[in-house]
Amino acid sequence: METFESLVRAEFTPKNVYLNTASNGLLPARTVAALDRAVRMRAEGTPLGPLYEDVEAVRASFARLAGVPVERVATGASVAEYGGLIAASLPAGAEVLTAEADFASLVNPFHMRGDLKVRAVPLERLAESVRQGTTLVAVSAAQSADGRIADLPAVRAAAEAHGARTYVDASQSVGWLPLEAGEHDFVAAVGFKWLLGPHGAAFCVVPEDFGGLTPLLAGWVAGEAPWDSCYGPVQELAHSARRFDISPSLFSHAGLRASLELIEELGVPAIQAHDLALADRFREGLTALGHDPLPAPGSAIVSVPGLGHRQPDLSAAGIEVSNRAGNLRAAFHLYNTPTDVDRLLAVLSS
Rank of each mutant, 00 (worst) to 15 (best):
G219Y: 00
L195H: 01
P207E: 04
D185H: 15
G191A: 14
F210E: 05
A189V: 12
T214I: 11
L195R: 03
G219P: 04
F203Y: 14
V187E: 02
P215K: 12
V205I: 15
A189G: 11
W194F: 15
L217Y: 12
L217A: 13
F203R: 01
A218N: 11
L195E: 02
A201P: 08
G211Q: 03
H184Y: 13
A201N: 09
P198M: 04
W220K: 13
A189S: 14
F210T: 04
T214Y: 00
P198S: 02
G212M: 10
G200W: 01
A188R: 01
A202W: 03
T214A: 14
A188K: 00
F192M: 11
W220A: 15
A222Y: 01
F210A: 10
W194V: 13
K193V: 12
F192L: 02
G219E: 07
E183V: 06
A188N: 00
V190K: 07
L213R: 05
G200V: 14
F186S: 07
H184E: 05
V221W: 00
L216R: 14
G212P: 15
D209I: 10
C204R: 01
G219N: 09
F186L: 06
D209P: 10
D209Y: 03
A201I: 10
L196S: 14
C204H: 00
L216M: 05
V187P: 08
V206L: 11
D185M: 05
D209G: 08
L216T: 08
E208D: 15
H199R: 10
A218K: 08
A222H: 01
G200C: 09
D185K: 04
V190F: 01
A202I: 07
L195V: 13
W220R: 13
A202L: 08
L213Q: 02
V187Q: 05
F192K: 10
F203L: 10
G219F: 02
P215Q: 06
A222Q: 01
W194K: 09
H184K: 02
F186C: 05
V206G: 06
A188W: 00
L217E: 12
F210Y: 07
L195N: 05
F186T: 13
A189M: 15
G211T: 12
E208N: 07
E208R: 08
A202K: 02
P215V: 12
A201G: 10
G212D: 14
G200N: 01
G219I: 08
V206P: 09
W194Y: 14
E183Q: 13
G212L: 11
D185Q: 11
G197F: 07
G197M: 09
A218Q: 09
L213I: 06
E183S: 11
V206D: 02
A201Q: 04
A201S: 15
D185C: 05
F203P: 10
L196P: 02
G219K: 07
G191E: 06
F186W: 04
F186A: 11
A201L: 07
G211H: 03
C204G: 06
L196F: 05
L216Y: 08
V205E: 05
V206R: 01
P215R: 08
V187S: 02
V221S: 04
G200Y: 03
V206S: 03
L213V: 03
W194D: 10
G191S: 15
E183I: 02
G191Y: 07
D209Q: 09
V205A: 08
F203G: 06
V205P: 10
